[in-house]
Amino acid sequence: MRRNTGVFIAFAIVFCWFALLTFLLQFPTVFTEPWPYILLLLQTHLYTGLFITAHDAMHGVAAPGNIKLNTVIGFVCALLFAFNWYPRLLPKHHQHHHFVATEKDPDYHGGNFWAWYLSFLKQYITWPQMLAMALTFNILTYFFPLENVVLYWMLPAVLATFQLFYFGTYQPHKGEHNAENKHRSTTLKRNHVWAFISCYFFGYHYEHHDKPFLPWWKLYQEKDRSFK
Rank of each mutant, 00 (worst) to 15 (best):
M1K: 08
R2F: 08
R3W: 11
N4M: 06
N4L: 08
N4Q: 05
N4D: 09
G6L: 01
G6C: 05
V7L: 07
V7H: 05
F8I: 10
I9Y: 11
A10P: 02
F11W: 05
I13F: 11
V14Y: 08
V14N: 00
V14Q: 01
F15L: 13
F15E: 06
C16A: 15
F18Y: 07
F18P: 00
A19V: 08
A19C: 05
A19W: 14
L20N: 15
F23K: 04
F23L: 14
F23E: 04
L25S: 09
Q26P: 00
Q26H: 12
P28V: 08
P28E: 13
V30C: 03
F31S: 08
F31C: 05
T32W: 10
T32Y: 13
T32R: 04
E33C: 08
E33T: 14
E33S: 15
E33A: 13
E33G: 04
E33M: 11
P34W: 15
P34L: 11
W35N: 13
W35K: 01
W35D: 15
P36K: 15
P36R: 08
Y37F: 15
Y37P: 02
L39E: 03
L39I: 13
L39Y: 00
L40R: 06
L41T: 03
L42S: 10
Q43E: 14
Q43H: 09
T44I: 06
T44V: 05
H45G: 02
H45R: 09
L46Y: 06
L46K: 06
Y47Q: 07
Y47C: 14
Y47P: 01
T48L: 12
T48R: 01
T48F: 10
G49V: 09
G49W: 11
L50H: 09
F51R: 02
F51C: 07
T53L: 03
A54V: 12
A54C: 12
A54T: 11
H55D: 04
D56A: 07
A57H: 01
A57Y: 02
A57V: 08
A57T: 03
A57N: 05
M58I: 12
G60D: 12
V61M: 04
A62D: 04
A62Y: 02
A63I: 05
N66Y: 11
N66V: 14
N66T: 05
N66W: 14
N66F: 10
I67N: 03
I67A: 14
K68H: 09
K68P: 00
L69P: 00
N70S: 10
N70D: 12
T71A: 07
T71V: 05
T71N: 12
V72W: 10
V72S: 00
I73D: 11
I73C: 11
F75A: 02
F75S: 09
F75N: 08
V76I: 15
V76L: 03
V76N: 00
V76E: 00
C77G: 03
A78G: 06
L79C: 12
L79H: 07
F81S: 00
F81A: 01
A82K: 01
F83G: 02
N84C: 02
W85D: 12
W85F: 15
W85M: 11
W85G: 02
P87M: 12
R88K: 13
R88T: 02
L89C: 05
L90V: 07
L90N: 04
L90R: 10
L90M: 03
P91F: 07
H94G: 03
Q95I: 04
H96K: 13
